[in-house]
Every structure is written in C-alpha cells, then in structure tokens.
C-alpha cells in the first residue's frame, strides 16, 4: 500500500448512476486484479473504498456507482483535480488455479474489478467467458469493453430488456468452465453458490473503517479463521466461505 496524490485525468458518466474516473499517478503498489483504492474526499471523514477496474504503469481506472454522498461528490469532480488516495489495498484475485476456461461473473457495480482480471487471463491465453447481470438494459456498462478484450460475453437482465431474461445464473447455465471469479451483491453470490460446479473466488463488499487492516471494522468468519475483508480479502476462496 502507498499513499499519494492522483490527478483526475477524466471523469465521465457511463449510465444514469455509474461513472468512470481515470486517475494519473504511481501504480507500483497494485499487485493484483481485484484490489481497491481508498479515496479521501473533502469534508468526508472516512475514505471511500473503490475497486480498481483497470490500471497500467501510470493510470488507475475506477468505475463506480453513485450510492451515497461520497460517490456523488466524486461524480461531480472534474479533470485536473487531485485526490489523496491509498493505493494497492486488499489481496485481489489469484490466477493460479483457474484452468483453461475461467468464468467471470459480475453483478451490477460488482462488474468493474473483473475487467483487469479478464485482461490478464486473456493475456495468459485463457478462453474467458464473462457473464454480466444487470436489472435492465439502461444499466449495462463495460459489455463492449469485455468483448474488445476477446472474451465471450453473456448479459442477463432481470427484466429481460436485453440478453438473457433473468439472473447471471440463468446466463451461465450452458457455459463450460474450469473455475469462476465473481463480484456482486450477496443474493447473486448465494445463487451462484447453489449452482456453481467448480471451485472459485468471491470478492466481498463491507463497510470499512480504515481499509488497510488496522481497525477490524470489516471482519468476517471463514473456515480458515477470522479475516478482514479489507486486508485478507476482499477476495475469498469458495472453500473457506461460511454462508
């Protein structure tokens, strides 16, 4: 983890509530897909943890949903402003055990951290299938980005306005996969847990205090002992999770 000041290179709206912010600065502390940053905002006491959608040597891309006063403030920030950011937090996804045909399952605002993961898996020569779940057509984002990486993309919408009608579990029915990676809301996790046929990794969300393991504000129990979502997670292996 490092602390630094990052310049906003762009901040654009993708859907009614989802924005994409690109930050410029040192990314050396990022070691894995699925890690997050923790952003200090003027007038807000606690930082805002946001998953990293993508990164390269000098930029970090965040795709975030406006869910409260902090993210709303972020959505109004403009190019050139600077942010105090803790970078490289959390464990991120581990690519070691995923076999040749990994399946990536994202629900709503859980989709972004899968993007860099998808990029890495494709660079490793894997045949990647991405299943994205949204409530309705207007809320879909990053679909084309995943396609451009070379992944096979299946979209499910709860109201059937686009792609498969239903949930991610409906869209993944006929997918042949060797392992899965997922990020999204808890009801989606439980549905996946009920049908998944392989091992996999889940990325969890929790209200955090510090985001770097000091306060024990986001602890959970696992089969491997107590873990802090911010430091020992947010990614947990399927085998260790207590549902």
């Amino acid at each position: 983890m490092t602390q630094g000041f990052y310049k906003i290179l762009s901040n654009i709206q993708l859907t009614r509530t989802v924005y994409k912010m690109v930050l410029g600065g040192d990314t050396g502390a990022i070691t894995a897909s699925g890690q997050f940053v923790n952003i200090k905002l003027d007038g807000k006491f606690l930082r805002r943890p946001i998953s990293i959608c993508d990164y390269d040597e000098t930029t970090i891309t965040l795709v975030y949903k406006v869910v409260g006063v902090g993210t709303e403030q972020m959505s109004k920030m403009t190019e050139g402003q600077e942010l105090d950011v803790l970078v490289g937090l959390g464990n991120g996804y581990s690519l070691d055990k995923c076999g040749d045909k990994p399946l990536l399952i994202g629900g709503g605002v859980g989709v972004p951290p899968l993007y860099n993961l998808c990029k890495k898996l494709i660079n490793e020569g894997k045949k990647v299938t991405v299943v994205l779940g949204f409530n309705t057509k207007e809320e879909i984002f990053l679909e084309d980005d995943f396609k451009k990486l070379g992944a096979e993309v299946l979209v499910a919408t709860a109201d059937g306005s686009y792609g498969v009608k239903g949930f991610v579990t409906d869209a993944m029915k006929d997918v042949d996969y060797t392992y899965f990676f997922t990020c999204g809301p808890m009801p989606m996790f439980k549905a996946i847990e009920a049908v998944a046929s392989t091992s996999g990794q889940y990325s969890f969300e929790e209200r955090m205090g510090c985001g770097f393991g000091a306060c024990m504000g986001c602890s959970c129990k696992t089969k491997y002992g107590n873990k802090r979502i911010c430091k020992d997670g947010p990614v947990l292996e399927r085998e260790e999770i207590i549902w």
């Binding site: 929790e206 205090g209 504000g217 602890s219």
Partner: peptide, 23 residues
Amino acid sequence: RFGNPCPRIAECDSGMINAVGLQ
C-alpha cells in the same frame, strides 16, 4: 473474541462510529 456482526462502522460529520466489540 470475534466481536460484533458487520456493519461495524458508520461515518459521521467529523468522526465515525465503531462497534467492533473487542475482536
């Protein structure tokens, strides 16, 4: 001690509330 269930943290104006529970 594991402490209390999550959420354990809430933000306030110029401060925060924690209910970690001595983990």
